[in-house]
Write a protein that binds this DNA or RNA. Structure first.
Length: 437
RNA sequence: GGAGAGGUGGCUGAGUGGUCGAAAGCGCUCCCCUGCUAAGGGAGUAAGGGCUAAUACCCCUUCGAGGGUUCGAAUCCCUCCCUCUCCGCCA
């Protein structure tokens, strides 16, 4: 049973007027995701809704007028019994039509809430991961004169990566880091936060790790991805955040921002919790896919029309981290079959992992357009119109700390199983320049 | 966890059944006056939805959330949430 989502005042996920005016175009766009939107059925419901709404509003107007008349008559000391009788029928009829309207509205809302975001024209059409398009490659993987170990073996020989203890305490998909390796992850986090706040203009925020259903609805994890979340048994339940994107973006939920406050850039380090339901057998070795991991997240709120540029900029901020750490990576644009539910356009950064001999995702940077803003009712006052209008939201990992740790271990490994400390992290390691057993 | 107070427009704050979407003040916008500045005068100033060529009228909804009473609820009743004060407890 999902937590209560108090969002009945939110009209729709994709602009309702756009849906009505161009349902077929919307259906076409969503079909690129292999999402089936039955435009005809939707429009038929919309027509019913409109007719019923007009009827309800007319009946209400009649009732309101009568109520006022009664008030006036009473003030004059007249007998109001005949007026009461006239209103009675209006009331029963109104209740009946209201019931019908509510039913239709619920059906419409159910459809709308389940609609993914429209895709940007840049998004290549494709079925899955394999169809993502590489748009950039940076750095050369080191050539080793010994066989590369993966982080699990390196961690074991260092005696600083303990999956057995984690399993005893918590089960699978958890890890315990020890000593210098634990510190290395903290160093990565500190380094990233420092770069983003000092050089990229982000404000650091500390946020709750437990949130209400509304917040998850706002950023798009609910209602569709209920099963991916951990949640408590409280009533209403708390959800453990799957990413800092949720609390940080929702900071501006139901707010109207002034133009001068934009663009709003915020960065937070948080743990992230994911149930990983349905990923059985996937990445079971090591700490690639955990129930709990650390991440530094970048969030931007920008004026509509500036979000395309902002996505390039934000992705660049994440790239800087990998470049300063001298970690080879590639940048891919996710294809229509792989891009997330709420995303308009997404770049993934994939870091080179010698232990896997592959590039693996370490950052995902997305422009959500107005999708999240509509769900959260986050707006700005457009000076041009003087009216509140929806903002555009973006977020990206800058970057995932757990995977960054893996990347550093595997890319900086030496023949003897020790791990060199990247120059950028040395100030955060108290002078230590090599981690060895 | 216990006791009390309270949640109203960008803000402060009045309103305890009817002409209240809501006094007043602040803030903001425009205009007038004023030889700079200061002060003063006038007007305007919530959001969402429907209708529409319309950012014009008109209509509907919204006074923490949900439910109820009533012809009619910001105002009465119930449940919940949150904030503040005091006490307890505690990192």
């Amino acid at each position: 049973m999902p937590g209560k989502i108090n969002s009945k005042k939110i009209p729709t996920m994709i602009d309702a007027k756009l849906l009505r005016a161009s349902a077929a175009t919307v259906a076409e766009n969503l079909a690129r995701r292999r999402f089936e939107f039955d435009a005809d059925a939707y429009l038929a419901l919309e027509e019913q809704r409109k007719a019923l709404q007009v009827e309800v509003e007319n009946l209400r107007a009649g009732r309101n007028a009568s109520a006022k008349d009664i008030g006036k008559a009473k003030a004059r000391g007249e007998d109001i019994t005949p007026l009461l009788a006239a209103v009675e029928e209006l009331g029963t009829k109104l209740a009946a039509v209201e019931g019908k309207l509510q039913l239709v509205q619920e059906q419409i809302r159910e459809i709308e809430v389940g609609l993914p975001n429209l895709l940007h024209d840049d998004v290549p059409v494709g079925a899955d991961e394999a169809d993502n398009t590489e748009v950039k490659k940076w750095g050369e993987p080191r050539t080793l004169d010994f066989e590369a170990k993966d982080h699990v073996d390196l961690g074991a020989s260092l005696g600083m990566l303990d999956f057995d203890s984690a399993a005893r305490i918590s089960g699978s998909r958890f890890v315990v880091l020890q000593g210098p390796l634990a510190r290395l992850q903290r160093a990565l986090i500190q380094f990233m936060l420092d770069v983003h706040t000092a050089e990229h203009g982000y404000e650091e925020v500390y946020v709750p790790y437990l949130v209400q259903a509304d917040a998850l609805f706002g950023t798009g994890q609910l209602p569709k991805f209920e099963n991916d979340q951990f949640k408590t048994t409280d009533d209403p339940p708390f959800y453990l955040i799957p990413t800092a994107e949720v609390p940080v973006t929702n900071l501006e939920r139901e707010n109207i921002l002034e133009a001068a406050e934009l663009p709003l850039r915020r960065v937070a380090h948080t743990p992230c919790f994911r149930s990983e339901a349905g990923s059985y057998g996937k990445d079971t070795r090591g700490m690639i896919r955990q129930h709990q991991f650390e991440k530094v997240e970048l969030v931007q709120l920008v004026e509509p029309g500036k979000s395309d540029a902002a996505l390039e900029e934000l992705t660049g901020h994440a790239e800087v981290i990998l470049e300063r750490l001298n970690l080879p990576y590639r940048k891919v644009i996710l294809c229509s079959g792989d891009v997330g539910f709420g995303s308009h356009k997404t770049y993934d950064l994939e870091v080179w992992l010698p232990g896997q001999n592959a590039y693996r995702e370490i950052s995902s940077c997305s422009n959500y357009g107005d999708f999240q803003a509509r769900r959260m009712q986050t707006r700005w006052r457009n000076p041009a119109s003087g009216k509140p209008e929806l903002l555009h939201t973006l977020n990206g990992s800058g970057v995932a700390a757990g995977r960054a740790l893996i990347a550093v271990m595997e890319n900086y490994q030496e023949a003897d199983g020790s791990v060199m400390v990247p120059d950028a992290l040395k100030p955060y390691m108290g002078g230590l320049d090599k981690i060895s057993a």
